[in-house]
Amino acid sequence: MKSHPSQEQLIDYLHGELAPGEDAAFLLHLEGCDDCRGRYEDEAHLTESLRSFARSTERELPAGVRAVIWSAVESSHRELGWAQRLAAWLRPAVAIPVAATLVVAAFVGYDSVAHRSGAPTIDAAYYLDDHAALTSAVPFNEGNTVPAALFTTESADGAQ
């Protein structure tokens, strides 16, 4: 690429929309042209500002939306028999938390008996996480895919 790219080409490049040969020639041009690199960085910065804005305004799905969808779906099946309605009610979102609550209750019951001695316990998550973190010392192993800090609560952040 001998001449300087147009603004349109810069934007297409930023979005990975140039043909492979053109893309490589473009990168080669950017390597040697400070002006075009500056223009490219301006465009990249605009994209980054948009993404930062999107992240900072990201919202959870309001619980009410979910409820309205299910109520619209279920009201359309009002004529159905009780068995089918029960099956619908026991869809995963309801059934899994119920099952999970039962499982957790069972384990909490078990462990409260097992640990009546008052001795401290160490959450198995800590062992699993520490093992994963240290495996990054092995070639071609990135260790933890997700840092524990994004999963655990403040009190469970682990070691002192």
């Binding site: 999107a54 990201e58 919202r59 959870e60 799905l61 309001p62 939306v65 979910r66 969808i69 779906v73 099946h77 159905l80 089918q84 099956a87 619908a88 869809r91 995963p92 979102a93």
Partner: peptide
């Protein structure tokens, strides 16, 4: 409705509800 249809919607909301809303 079929159980698959309900499960399809459940999964769609769980996985894509937030992205769609945003």
């Amino acid at each position: 409705p079929s159980p698959q249809q309900t499960a399809f919607l459940e999964r769609a909301i769980n996985e894509y509800g937030r992205a769609t809303y945003n």
